[in-house]
Simulated assay, not measured.
Amino acid sequence: MSDSKKTAPSLYIRVDIPVKYINEFKEICSEVVIEPWEFGETEPQPTVDLSKFDILYTLGLHDNLSILKKAPKIKWVHSDSAGVEAMLNEDIKKSDVIITNVKGCSSVPIAEHTIAMLSSLARGVPTMIRNQINKNWVEIPVKDLENSTVGIIGYGDIGFEIAKRCKGLGMTVIGCRRNPAQRKGKYEPADLIMGMDQVDEVLSRSDFVVLALPFTKDTSYFLNEERINKMKKGSHLINVGRGNTIVDEDLIESLKNGHIAGAALDVFEVEPLPEDHPFWKLENVMVSPHNAYNSAKHLDRVMELFLKNLKLFSDGKPLKNVVEKGLGY
């Protein structure tokens, strides 16, 4: 967006947002209309004329933006999720519509969740809980986090926050990213940052592998049998990125034969995870219901970002968290 005089844009919202935030939006916008689309429900039809709206606030995980055919004036679409895969069809990629997301708003809680999973896998917590239920008093094999190596595949905002906490536990941290020369600032917690072309080496060196990858054509089914076999025998896997980055059948086989000692999985290709999925029953797997992002402060972080962008849009200034459509994040 180029600089221009201040405007009062109109906003159409497809997610449920508390009234106190809506009132703040109304202080900036000329009109705000809310017609929530509940996750898992059939897409509702708008009851208002969309041709007058400038901004669409929706959920990038399930809105393919076909609604924009009725909203030709939309200049900016904001996703209430970090994932925007459903949005990025060829028409949207070719259009001038700006896409933003909530990247960064969940980095801290996801990092804290990751540390909880790392510690649980290292200390045998899944076995401990089963033994408690069965009143079984048996010594449990454990692994030290101190001096172990964690490889963070997808070393972005989330990976950075994970790395900071892993260093506090005395771990060696290897970050792996598309652009290994990129730095967040003066402080860099990772001991080594490698390129995605070196990912096999990262896998072979890591006692713990954390997947924090975005959804792109390059990350789809990234962790397959070939890459799993490159992982250190007895290593552990944590996935807090996207569910479709793992070939489930290949991981299940590796968990059963003991090549991978255990896994903590927060995201899945099909959600909710089907009741008959093997992940539920494997004793060396911890399943969480796409909950790593969750935090008592999550909504406040998301609203603070959107309000900041709403003011920038009103002032004709560039927005924050703009998605690079070609990359997918």
Rank of each mutant, 00 (worst) to 15 (best):
P18E: 13
I34Y: 00
H259W: 08
G316V: 03
K69E: 14
N147A: 09
I99M: 04
L50F: 11
D96R: 14
K164F: 13
E226W: 06
M1F: 06
S235I: 04
I99K: 02
Y12T: 11
N229V: 09
S30A: 12
E35K: 07
Q132S: 14
Y293K: 07
E146T: 13
L61C: 14
C29R: 00
L203A: 02
K143G: 00
S79V: 09
H259T: 01
I129V: 14
S2W: 11
Y12W: 09
F25R: 00
G168I: 13
A296Y: 15
D266V: 06
D250I: 10
N284S: 09
E304V: 09
G243S: 10
Y329K: 07
L203M: 10
N64I: 01
I228T: 02
A292L: 06
A261D: 06
V322A: 06
P44T: 11
D16A: 14
G195F: 15
P189I: 11
T47V: 15
V125H: 05
K233G: 01
K184N: 11
H290I: 03
Q198L: 12
E112D: 07
V240I: 14
E112W: 15
V287R: 03
S204G: 04
K308M: 07
S235Q: 06
P46M: 07
K186S: 11
Q198P: 02
V138F: 08
K217P: 01
M128D: 00
R183V: 15
G168Y: 11
G262I: 07
P272N: 07
K26W: 02
N179H: 10
K5F: 10
E27W: 01
N136S: 12
I158V: 15
G159Q: 07
N179T: 09
S204A: 08
N89F: 10
I238V: 15
G243F: 07
S10W: 02
K217D: 12
I133K: 14
H298N: 09
I28G: 00
M303S: 09
R123T: 11
T114I: 07
E35F: 11
S79W: 04
K297A: 11
I152E: 01
K184Q: 13
R205D: 02
D80H: 14
G241M: 00
P214W: 00
G83W: 04
P214D: 10
G234T: 04
S314L: 01
L305K: 13
N89T: 15
A212D: 00
E275M: 09
K184G: 02
G234R: 09
S220D: 12
P274E: 08
V285S: 03
V125W: 13
K256N: 06
E35C: 08
G258K: 07
A181K: 05
K256M: 07
I13H: 06
R123N: 15
E139A: 15
D54G: 03
G60C: 05
V33G: 03
D191Y: 13
G170N: 01
A264S: 11
L265H: 08
P289L: 08
K93G: 09
P180F: 04
Y155C: 01
G262N: 02
G124W: 13
